[in-house]
Amino acid sequence: MYPILIVEDEPSMLMGLKDNLEFESYEVDTAEDGEIGLNKILENNYSLVLLDVMLPKISGFDICKKARAKGIQTPIILLTAKGEEIDKVLGLELGADDYITKPFGLRELLARIRAVLRRTQNVTAGKEEEKIELGRLSVDFKSFEGFVDGEEVKMSHKEVEILHYLWNHKNKTVSRDDLLDEVWGTEYQPTSRTIDNFILKLRQKIEDDPNHAKIILTVHGVGYRLVSN
């Protein structure tokens, strides 16, 4: 059973989500404002968080940022009435795993939840190798721990998922569509700028000179290739 936290300040929306997720056999906890939600995220081990953006006390964006800064890697799906691309990009760059705009249908939400859980459980399962060393970076795919030159660094869920996929396809060209489908899924796809930003963050951890990458290469017009012996 997957424990899910819902952080939502609209009582009717909160109870509707809770009832429907419990009907689907999820274990559900709730919070009605950002402060309570953040404390619960920091103090508990959830499988996933449904997080409203517009919340009293602390916004969903700030909760996401603070949780990731504390090393919390719990998958987060943002819920918001905002539909502008800039908000989607901001949410994903702060560490959210997906984004769904109100109003949404129950079937769509359940599909998003299953997709995120499936992707994150696949990463934590470790697959072929749990720990690798790549350039300056040592990373544990199971614990999401990363070390650069021996010093611990924060690794977001998406950074680990992208690197895990590239590693499993090392020395092969991976298209942008491959990354979109395997890391973000088909329900929501970010802009190419968002993908580039994640690649840049990985290069800053891995490469001696991120401006002249030798490990994660750009294949112009196609995608990326991770080069490793």
Score class of each variant (00 low, 15 high):
E43H: 13
S25G: 01
H157A: 00
L137H: 07
L179Q: 08
E35M: 10
L106Y: 15
T124A: 11
F144R: 05
S175K: 11
D208W: 03
I77F: 08
E84M: 13
R107F: 15
M1D: 14
K201A: 07
E8V: 05
P210Q: 06
E35G: 03
E182P: 03
D62F: 10
A96E: 07
D209V: 07
V153H: 11
E187Q: 10
L117N: 04
E151T: 14
S175V: 10
I113E: 05
V183T: 05
D62W: 08
H164G: 09
T191H: 07
L55W: 02
D97G: 06
E84Q: 14
M1S: 15
T120H: 12
L38P: 04
E85L: 12
V183N: 01
K131T: 10
E27C: 11
Y46T: 02
N44S: 14
E10C: 12
E130I: 05
F144V: 02
E108V: 08
G126H: 01
L134Y: 01
G105W: 07
K142T: 02
K201E: 04
D149E: 15
F104H: 05
G34M: 03
M54Q: 13
N197S: 15
G71L: 07
K131C: 12
R68N: 11
G223R: 04
D33T: 02
R225T: 10
M13Q: 12
G146L: 03
E93S: 11
G223M: 08
A81Q: 08
V7P: 01
W167E: 00
F104S: 07
I206N: 00
E93Y: 02
Y99H: 08
L21S: 11
V148G: 02
G83K: 12
N171D: 14
G91E: 08
Y224Q: 05
D196K: 12
L226D: 08
T218C: 06
L217H: 08
G185H: 02
T173M: 12
V219I: 12
V28G: 04
E145R: 04
S228F: 14
G135P: 04
L17N: 07
H169M: 02
G105A: 02
R136A: 04
G150E: 13
K57F: 11
V116A: 06
A111T: 05
L5I: 02
K154V: 15
L109G: 03
K82C: 00
E130Y: 13
A125G: 15
D177S: 13
Q73Y: 13
G221E: 08
N168W: 01
A67Q: 06
K88V: 09
E133N: 12
L200N: 12
Y2W: 09
Y188H: 09
H220K: 14
E32F: 11
M155C: 05
E182L: 04
M54F: 13
V174N: 01
I199N: 00
S143H: 14
D149M: 05
I4R: 01
A111H: 06
L179N: 06
T101R: 00
A115I: 02
G221P: 08
L134R: 03
Q73F: 09
L202P: 00
E108T: 11
N20F: 12
V222Y: 15
I41G: 01
S156G: 06
P103W: 09
H157F: 15
